[in-house]
Simulated assay, not measured.
Amino acid sequence: MAIKLVAADLDGTLLDSDKQLSPDLFPLIGALEKQGVRFAPASGRQYYNLREMFAPMADELVYISENGAMVCDGAKVISFSAMPAEVVQRAVETAREIPGASAILACREGAFYENDKDGVFLENMAHYYARRRYAPDLLRLAEREPVCKVAVFCSRKAESTVLPALAPFAAEAQVALSGADWVDLMRPGMNKGQAIGSLCEALGIAPEDCMAFGDYLNDLELLQSVGESFAMANAHDTLKKTAKYICPSNDEDGVCRTIRHILGIDK
């Protein structure tokens, strides 16, 4: 097996239920590098959030952030896929009408939000957006700032409330359920799988030589795009049916254990 790239989602995949990375992960990434294998966090999280999480080796990794809308090799931006401003503005207007929902606009240099009163939203946003700034009106911001993703938060009601409200955007935007609390809108066709294609082209490797791990519906295209796909034991049922293999859960250090087993890397 000639694996050249390993991509792994964060929440529910690399991170355990306490939102912690495995202590074995950084040594494992170092071992992968010695074998000529690149490692890519692949997340709906912000690029700057991922760099912060992987600070000890931030410039050595490749990143699939914002569910594929921003792809980087270390500090170099490989791709940034902005949405039409008019679609962004209508998405913000729709989010404003959803009870309990709050929108975030993901831009190249950081994220912007207009709801600074909801403590639950602010706490959750802080987990995923390291570089963020308050903006009094996201509609006006979208007129002047390119936006690669609109993220809409609604505590524990993303699938039941936000997803149906944003479903009409499916003809002009990629609508992805990113977890129990989040729904993301991006350019049509934009997803982690498309980002794998961009990374493979930039790195000069084939998708068949990639391995990927995921747990939720925004990982669907990621797993479909690689040669070796793994759904976590705790994954959404749809993802389990899509993946080539099932691996141990995020609370069992499933990603690290599987990589070591498949690629023959000893501790």
Rank of each mutant, 00 (worst) to 15 (best):
V37T: 00
Y63Q: 06
E86D: 13
G74A: 04
G100P: 11
L122T: 02
M125E: 12
R133V: 09
Y129V: 06
V147H: 04
E109L: 07
R90V: 07
Q46L: 11
Y48P: 00
A101H: 00
V147C: 10
G74I: 03
V150H: 01
A126T: 04
F153K: 03
S79A: 14
G74T: 04
I64Q: 05
F121C: 00
A85F: 05
V87C: 09
L50S: 01
D73W: 09
D137A: 06
R51T: 09
I104D: 11
D73A: 14
N115Y: 08
E93Y: 01
M53V: 12
I98R: 00
F54T: 06
Q35I: 01
S43G: 02
S81H: 12
A142K: 02
I98W: 02
I98N: 01
S79K: 03
Q89N: 07
F39H: 07
A135H: 15
R108L: 15
E93P: 00
V87R: 05
G36K: 10
Y63T: 08
L122K: 00
R96M: 05
M57Q: 15
G36P: 11
L50G: 02
A103L: 06
V62W: 09
P56C: 11
P56S: 09
M125G: 05
S81E: 15
R96P: 01
R108K: 14
P56V: 12
F121W: 02
S43P: 03
A85E: 11
R51D: 02
V120C: 11
E60C: 11
D73V: 04
F121D: 01
L105H: 04
A101V: 00
D59Q: 15
E93S: 10
A69L: 07
Y134T: 07
M70P: 00
I78S: 02
C107R: 08
K117N: 11
A126E: 09
G100V: 05
L50W: 03
A101C: 02
M83H: 03
K149N: 11
F80D: 09
K76C: 06
F80G: 09
A130I: 08
Y48D: 12
R90Q: 15
M70W: 09
V150S: 00
A135N: 13
Y47R: 13
D59V: 13
I104E: 13
A130Q: 13
M57L: 15
G100Y: 09
F80R: 08
G68M: 10
A58R: 15
L139P: 01
R132Y: 05
R108C: 08
N67V: 04
L141Q: 03
E145V: 15
D137P: 06
A142G: 03
Y134D: 08
M70R: 15
V92L: 06
E86L: 12
